[in-house]
Design a protein around this nucleic acid. Structure first.
Lengths: 215, 215
DNA sequence: CGCAAGATTTTTGTATACAATAATATTGAC
DNA sequence: GTCAATATTATTGTATACAAAAATCTTGCG
């Protein structure tokens, strides 16, 4: 795994931020963290730089680094961007995926279906992630794929929540088969359009959720 | 400006990498750089982290950080991704740009035209960048816009080169007016399609260029 | 009591010190 | 002379030290 302590700490901190351990705007105290991790400030500072560069925290010179939990507006923007990135992957994947790629996509989709039948939400989520990742790779563009993976990682927690909507998982599966058809047909436009919709609706569901919570 | 020396150094190093000062795979020697910038290793190390997180260098634990100049394949991937990002911006901007935004877009386009008449390549390039940035902002999605800006920044040097193709600037202007029409009409699909093409052709021109150099 | 000027404490940013690992050079056996 | 084992040097990663800036507290004036 990681040999540098700083990288390990960066990963741990990332997890902590995702799990909502820190409030939005909270300052990450170097000394306190150094004490908690039993290291000096040096590796802590390097770990904080990682958080900053991934957009999870903000650095204000001579003030410190403050964690930045995305608000509703930014989350919607991120979902919208994810929708467009996935659409792009689908567009390219439609003409570039091999039969073998398509077979593994069908396979992943089957495992999603199986997870629903077992009402195993967690497994559905991970299998669903695999399904999407196969499409990223299918675009045969490692740069685009890494961008998609990065954003998928940042949205993971929020994508997960919206699956709790009644009937959402079955609707999601319906969309999956449309996507599968378009990719099998090699129809770039339809693949892009269905994928865009599939992800965009997640953002909308999420929006509904937080709107209902604020009432 | 920047108060932290480390950030200044990061910017300077970024410029140096863009200007081709470093070979692909070259190791960035902390001690040598510290000497050159008249600082200790500490701010140098922080600056190197910035390069790594932006993808311009790679870090191998306990070995050092090595600069990574994108090769032809990765460059094409980046152009393709840029095309899709701009298409996404165009799609959203088509329904979201205000009349004022459109007016400033027309204005930027006029200044592009003017630069061509003055055969001022450099000014054409900066005005063209402004034209595109207005569309990023027009998408009314700060997250997407920042992604687009970031990639635009990384591709700057390469986008510039392909403008040297005979007739490319006039062709580019022709594409601009198509884009302008689509955005004015509020036609999301056409806006996306024309922008995608406009950027993709840049990648292809660039590809032609390096292919001809390798002969 | 409010608040501004100055003193004190925290905290960041950079320099230096040191330990551990990787790279390189040296030596010796064959 | 070649190669492996060891010794030496270089380089990274972390700890600590210190200076400068920011935040906080104190004090004195109105």
């Amino acid at each position: 795994m990681d040999i540098r302590r700083a990288d390990q700490i960066a990963n741990t901190l990332e997890q902590l931020v995702f799990s909502g351990e820190f409030q939005d705007g909270e300052r990450l105290d170097e000394l306190k963290l150094a004490e908690q991790f039993h290291v000096s400030r040096t590796p802590i500072r390097e770990a904080l730089q990682v958080l900053v560069s991934s957009g999870m925290a903000e650095q204000i010179p001579r003030r410190g680094v403050f964690i930045r939990q995305p608000g509703p507006v930014e989350l919607m923007e991120m979902f919208e961007t994810m929708a467009e990135l996935e659409a792009a992957c689908g567009r390219l994947a439609a003409t570039r995926m091999s039969d073998k790629d398509l077979a593994s996509l069908v396979n992943a989709n089957d495992r999603c279906q199986q997870a629903i039948q077992d009402t195993d939400h967690d497994r559905y989520y991970t299998e669903n992630e695999t399904f999407h990742q196969i499409i990223y790779r299918g675009a045969a563009n490692t740069f685009l794929a890494s961008q998609a993976l990065q954003l998928q990682n940042r949205l993971r927690a929020y994508r997960r929540i919206q699956l709790r909507f009644r009937g959402r998982m079955n609707q999601s599966m319906e969309e999956h088969s449309q996507i599968l058809c378009a990719l099998t047909d090699g129809d770039a436009d339809v693949a892009a359009q269905t994928l865009r919709g599939h992800v965009a609706v997640q953002g909308e569901k999420f929006h509904q959720l937080i709107a209902s919570l604020n009432r």
